[in-house]
């Protein structure tokens, strides 16, 4: 009898603890899912607005360097909060990926090494038609702007300096032998089958 009462009391004790914990957990989950910065869906979709370069000449003029090279590795990923001040970090930030690219030809500018680092918003983590990932082994032509973390991307800690493609995919061309295909053909004309012979591109860049 005493044991039965004791058992019941023990159950009530558990209930007194468990029910508030469960209620708290459910409330926390609801607040979390409704809270700021879009939680609740694992894929983050994004649309960017950026300068549009609609010719090789425009891209070349705005680039610090233009290279043809092969993507050899993904060498880092980081979330860019747009600041190096921890107290100013808000929201989910922008996922950024860094690629190592082995350049085979430098069409404009100079590089200290044939290996360069290219950092862009991470197309694998962002569902965006403006940023498609580079794949290891791909040969690409890149129109690049030099970035120093301190000045251009203070939220980045992995690299002090690196390059970024002009206006995301606008500055990326996929190579197919001696023909280059822009990743954003719609920005170069109405047709979706725009491609550029490399002889023409070399001439345009050297004239520019």
């Amino acid at each position: 009898m005493t044991q039965a009462i004791s058992t019941r009391a023990g159950r009530r004790g558990y209930a007194r603890v468990l029910i508030p914990v469960l209620v708290g957990a459910v409330a926390a989950a609801v607040v979390w899912s409704l809270g700021p910065f879009g939680r609740g869906d694992s894929t983050v979709h994004a649309s960017f607005d950026a300068p549009v370069y609609s010719s090789v000449e425009e891209l070349t003029s705005a680039s610090d360097i233009v290279v043809i090279g092969t993507v050899t590795a993904v060498v880092g990923r980081e979330t860019d909060f747009g600041t190096n001040n921890l107290s100013e970090r808000v929201g989910d930030g922008i996922p950024v990926v860094f690629y190592e690219v082995e350049s085979s030809e430098v069409l404009k500018g100079t590089t200290d090494s044939t290996t360069i680092i290219v950092g862009n918003p991470d197309g694998e983590k962002l569902g965006s038609e403006d940023v498609t990932p580079l794949e290891v082994g791909q040969e690409v032509m890149l129109f690049l702007r030099a970035q120093t973390a301190a000045k251009d991307a203070p939220g980045i800690t992995l690299f002090d300096s690196f390059y970024t493609t002009l206006s995301l995919d606008n500055g990326i061309f996929d190579m197919d032998g001696e023909v280059a295909h822009p990743r954003t053909p719609g920005l170069f004309g109405d047709t979706a089958t725009v491609s550029f012979p490399m002889d023409d591109i070399r001439t345009q860049i050297s004239n520019g």
Binding site: A46, S47, D80, E88, I94, D152, A153, G155
Partner: peptide
């Protein structure tokens, strides 16, 4: 903020 890349804004 000042972010990696040469874009103006994103949603």
């Amino acid at each position: 903020g000042t972010y990696t890349g040469t874009w103006w804004a994103q949603t």
